[in-house]
């Protein structure tokens, strides 16, 4: 596949999947963000940091409109970013993936990446709504989160490479090795230092919606890139023309 075409289908599939992610979030996550920010405002009034007056609400409406308006745009930017990683991994692993066509292969890879670089890190460091989180610890929390994503992702890659050297009846040892490795990492990595002070039912429902939103991205990006690859890959084109 030509480089320009490869980059184009990766970026377009990431942007489309990201737009779907942003739209899903808009429908199912935004109500929880509004509730959490409402609690945040109540805390500001109670502590005396802000006054409950028309000026506050005018400013609040202005920045909430800006924040909400960015949901789909940010989804597309994040989608292009994660879609780029997905495209790289797909291009390098396509011949090893199970499945008869590119849609199946891409959806399977999307499932593997969803599990290893999203869901497992999420279980260690779950998403939190506004009002949870101390600004003083945001750098530490960011480092912990990105580190765990890297540990899980590179761990999965390493054990996959290792399993390739094993006989076919022992390849399950690669998966077993990854499971043991990630369980150890799970307990060794430090906890999120911030206490959750918001109501737990709000936090748990927000987290569930967050998972559904991100899941919609991974399903979409796998399906869309697989469709594009099926349509534009040289080897598929030559098969269709023969």
């Amino acid at each position: 596949m030509k480089s320009a075409l490869f980059i184009a289908i990766v970026i377009i599939s990431g942007a489309l999947a990201g737009a779907i992610h942003g739209t899903v979030n808009f429908a199912i996550v935004e109500p929880y963000l509004d509730q959490a920010i409402g609690i945040e405002n109540e805390n500001l009034f109670a502590s005396g940091e802000e006054e409950d007056n028309p000026q506050f609400w005018a400013d609040y409406e202005e920045y909430r409109v800006w924040q909400k308006s960015g949901q789909v745009l940010a989804g597309m930017i994040l989608g292009i970013a994660m879609g780029s990683l997905f495209g790289i991994v797909y291009a390098l692993s396509r011949n090893s993936l199970p499945g008869k066509n590119d849609v199946t292969k891409a959806v399977i890879l999307a499932g593997i990446m969803w599990l290893t670089i999203y869901l497992i890190p999420f279980l260690k460091y779950p998403a939190n709504p506004p009002t949870v989180g101390d600004a003083e610890t945001v750098v530490l929390r960011s480092i912990l989160y990105i580190s765990f994503i890297a540990i899980s992702g590179f761990g999965a890659l390493g054990f996959y490479k290792l399993s390739q050297k094993l006989q076919s009846d022992k390849k399950y040892l690669g998966i077993l090795g990854y499971v043991i490795f990630i369980v150890i990492a799970f307990f060794v990595m430090p906890e999120n230092p911030d206490e959750v002070t918001a109501p737990m039912n709000l936090v748990n429902e927000f987290r569930l919606m967050s998972v559904l939103g991100v899941t919609s991205f991974w399903i979409s990006v796998g399906f869309i890139l697989g469709l594009f690859w099926n349509k534009f890959d040289d080897t598929n084109l030559s098969k269709n023309n023969s």
């Binding site: 963000l33 998403a127 939190n128 506004p130």
Partner: peptide, 10 residues
Amino acid sequence: LTHDMRHAAG
């Protein structure tokens, strides 16, 4: 601008 997606994506 990315605030809401940042929270929602974890």
